[in-house]
Write a protein that binds this DNA or RNA. Structure first.
Lengths: 279, 279
DNA sequence: AAAAACTCTAAAGCAGCATGAGAGTTTTGC
DNA sequence: GCAAAACTCTCATGCTGCTTTAGAGTTTTT
């Protein structure tokens, strides 16, 4: 080895990069060794080439693609770098916004799982204070109680498409639910009114956003949509027996939904609820 | 087509997903069509399978890998989801931290390019107020002025390795520089003292971090290290002629470095500077 | 001179799809 | 009832930025 020349291994070491990466860069023409042995085909670099390699690593750290880097290095045009960087800046900002949403969603999901484990048993009736919530909702176009799960799935799709159409994050999708007018509930008629997803404060304001007021709710827990009718009836009976006055619309809330046990049925944990006033 | 069954295209459409993605999911066993025609091999789905597909999309939105999703769906274990999510949460936080650094670096670079275009011509002497700066520096172990660019490159590598060793972001690497003691400068001896990178307020505090005070500086601009000696001499002469008292150490600052024009030499834009006091 | 360390080329693998070719199937419109 | 349009099939390839592996050859160290 000549004293001024660095073998590929040495070059890799002092630049904290792998040998194969250097070979790749050679191949695509990002940085070519300054000398290649005619017989052995061994690559040799000059320490001055560090400058270029630094530049490459710097641009990479800015999130530029190798192709872009090559283009810039070949064109020698700082305007080009700038336009790429400005574009990149936008990208990064978008990514950050997405990651923020993701983080919030992950936290919600973890909480949701925790809640699932600590939750009361099926059929249990509780009286709870529930803080206010925000929902993104669309009215149901068919009463899915009259039909099967297929219609419910359809309505759910409509909700999702509405989110997509309005360019809204779909990541809230896990905490869904439906509402029913107080009157329908009191008269024992099952008539769906709206379908919704719970959203948090980070969710952009908009037309389909509503607030559900905080308050005391009578709740019953169950784990399948199939039994909603029966449990809703029990809920109503309980209110009547105890003379609780139903003070608002009925909500069927999906607390946790992890379809992990079955291919076709939603594996759920539900809470039916009505706000009550005491007298 | 049977009325309850959805073709792959329909299934794709209502779920806002591509046909090829569905085929992929089938292949890897994430979600299998509920019926496959024996002759045509056409895939048919049931609308109930939306639940599972939703779950998949939700988990994907949380940043989980398809492999992990499959594992979870097969095991049916909520603990597994949770452990994956907790891991994922850390990842996301790291990514956000990185993106923040990236964003700052991109902004710095864009500014740097702007400055490059608006900068005074080579050899021009200016008297400027320069705000305070923070640097990450290591002492030079050899006086690179006595040797060639190779030794400078070596010192630069040491600086970089020091950053890596202390697990610090390397993204500041573009704005480097060197210092020289006031005494050396005044006596016309070129003796390197430290090599540094400029860092901003987001940079973690640590042992090698120093503050360079704000103040009035006499500066001279140039575009190659090779001429530093000559321009430093001019700078000194200028101070003497005008009776400016040198008030601190000499700094050679790399304002912009884009080695785009040449494979081997650092294509630079430099500002030599000394703080001065007026009397 | 043998052993250890290094380097070469060429190919495959990774994730999560997208795209395309060429052949077969189902639906639509008249 | 039949052609055309639309859809679907399988299989293969490509994308990014590398990493890994295999098998063969070269340098350096002992």
């Amino acid at each position: 080895m000549k004293s001024e020349l660095l073998s590929i291994g040495e070059m890799a070491k002092i630049n904290n990069i792998s040998v194969s990466t250097l070979r790749l860069y050679d191949e695509i023409g990002l940085i070519k060794p300054c000398y290649i042995d005619g017989e052995s085909r061994y690559r040799y670099y000059n320490i001055r080439q560090n400058a270029r390699l630094d530049m490459i690593q710097y641009m990479k750290a800015l999130g530029m693609e190798l192709k872009e880097i090559k283009e810039v290095l070949e064109s020698g045009d700082t305007k080009l770098i700038e336009s790429i960087l400005i574009r990149r800046k936008k990208q990064v900002k978008e990514q950050m916004a997405n990651l923020n949403l993701q983080l919030a969603a992950i936290s919600r999901t973890i909480e949701s799982l925790e809640r699932y484990r600590k939750s009361p048993s099926i059929g249990m009736i509780t009286i709870e204070y529930i803080p206010h919530r925000k929902i993104y909702s669309v009215p149901t176009s068919m009463n899915f109680y009259d039909y099967g799960i297929e219609v419910y799935e359809n309505e759910l799709k409509k909700l999702k498409n509405s989110l997509i159409k309005h360019n809204l994050p779909q990541i809230y999708y896990c905490n869904a639910g439906t509402t029913m007018k107080k009157e329908s509930f009191l008269e024992g008629r099952l008539e769906s009114d709206e379908i919704f997803v719970l959203v948090d404060d980070e969710f952009p304001q908009g037309e389909n956003i509503k607030r559900i007021e905080s308050g005391m709710y009578v709740c019953i827990y169950l784990d399948s949509f199939d039994e909603e009718a029966e449990y809703a009836k029990r809920l109503l009976e309980y209110c009547e027996e105890n003379n609780y006055k139903v003070a608002g619309d009925y909500i069927c809330e999906v607390l946790t939904e992890f379809s992990v046990f079955d291919d076709e049925k939603r594996g759920m944990f539900l809470r039916l609820q009505v706000p009550v006033a005491f007298r």
